[in-house]
């Protein structure tokens, strides 16, 4: 029986959400194509994870090796290229995460297996693999096909498919001996590093006034600060504002920043890239202010204002202060 591989992703003792999201897509494809769904688990002392994965799959292949304790693309690639060459799964799914981005392209090159990255959909259409991706910051979608091959690799965008609860399938857990013989020569994991927490915790705020690159200059920041103050809220931001050093990194909302769920989220001059949206889409009410009517942020927001922020924000601030007076 042919297999679809889903590579389990875990970090610091936890299976990551993207693993279960991929299992959802993998299950759908395995039913459609009549292939087995196989979870591939690399790690050290990760038997507990194997049980969870077995609930959702036909089988779990586990490679247990101290050298696989922390993710290391070099070690992972060696093990996976072995497994894929041996078992020849027509499709391997990997998360489009810090982990997948470091691993999938070199693995695909070594195996000469066509790769499509950051996909929001994938399907077999008559022997060919077809994917959907987003380009130009989410403004355009692309449907693309991959060169004909016996084995494909696809990285899936996180938070795109929904993790599902299923009746436990009781998949078989098979331990595969580690092919790693010696130390990993080129890359060495040293430690994790987390920036110390600042004074403001944006995840605890009820109202977030969030600012993006549309603010243009550091000198313009007081406009949003005033609005936040009038509302009794806190200023958060998209990534470029932190990259430029205009706000500290603990104010950043998104995949590489914080995930927030305030009662009110006002996005000002933020385009709505998925890395940003995945960090704020579960807010109670989202209001977006952006001069571009096609900005993807309007697909995440409840209310939108298509206007120059430099006009709306001060007027809005005045209105709120008036109401309070």
């Amino acid at each position: 029986m042919k297999e679809i591989f889903v590579l389990a992703e875990h970090r610091r003792g936890e299976l990551r959400d993207v693993t279960f999201e991929m299992l959802t897509k993998g299950r759908e494809l395995s039913q459609k194509t009549n292939m087995d769904l196989t979870a591939v688990l690399l790690g050290y002392n990760v038997k507990e994870f194997a049980k969870k994965l077995a609930d959702q799959t036909k089988r779990v292949l586990i490679v247990d090796d101290a050298r696989l304790e922390n993710f290391n693309a070099e070690a992972y690639q060696k093990v996976l290229s072995n497994l894929i060459s041996e078992r020849k799964p027509p499709l391997t799914l990997i998360g489009h995460t810090a982990f997948g981005v470091d691993l999938a392209p070199s693995l695909a090159t070594e195996l000469n297996a066509p790769l499509a990255t950051d996909c929001i959909d994938v399907d077999f259409e008559e022997e060919k693999l077809v994917v959907v991706r987003q380009v130009y910051g989410g403004k355009v979608n692309v449907k693309a096909s991959l060169r004909k091959s016996d084995s494909y690799i696809v990285t899936l965008r996180p938070a795109t498919f929904e993790a599902q609860q299923v009746e436990p399938l009781g998949g078989e857990i098979t331990e595969v001996p580690s092919p790693l013989k010696e130390d990993i020569p080129y890359k060495k994991f040293i430690e994790y590093f987390e920036a110390p927490a600042g004074e403001v915790d944006i995840t605890a705020a009820d109202i977030l006034v969030s600012v993006g690159r549309g603010i243009k200059e550091a000198d313009n920041m007081p406009i949003v600060e005033k609005l936040a103050k009038a509302l009794g809220g806190v200023v958060s931001c998209s990534r470029p504002i932190v990259d430029k050093g205009w706000l500290p990194s603990d104010r950043q909302v998104g995949t590489s920043g914080k995930t927030v769920k305030p009662k009110l989220y006002i996005a000002i001059g933020i385009s709505g890239a998925f890395q940003h949206v995945s960090g704020m889409k579960n807010s109670d009410i989202i209001i977006a202010i952006n001069k571009d009517p096609k900005a993807p942020i309007f697909r995440a927001a409840d209310y939108g204002v298509v206007e120059d922020l430099f006009k709306v924000v001060p007027t809005l601030t005045d209105k709120i202060l008036e109401g309070k007076a």
């Binding site: 066509p114 979608n141 692309v142 096909s145 009517p293 697909r299 209310y303 204002v305 206007e307 709306v312």
Partner: peptide
Amino acid sequence: WITVEKMFIPPVEKEAEILTGGLDEV
């Protein structure tokens, strides 16, 4: 590895309610 078959503007699943009017009204 990849051939673009088709580019398209993403379908709108959910769209914000756009508030219209002058600055004061909005």
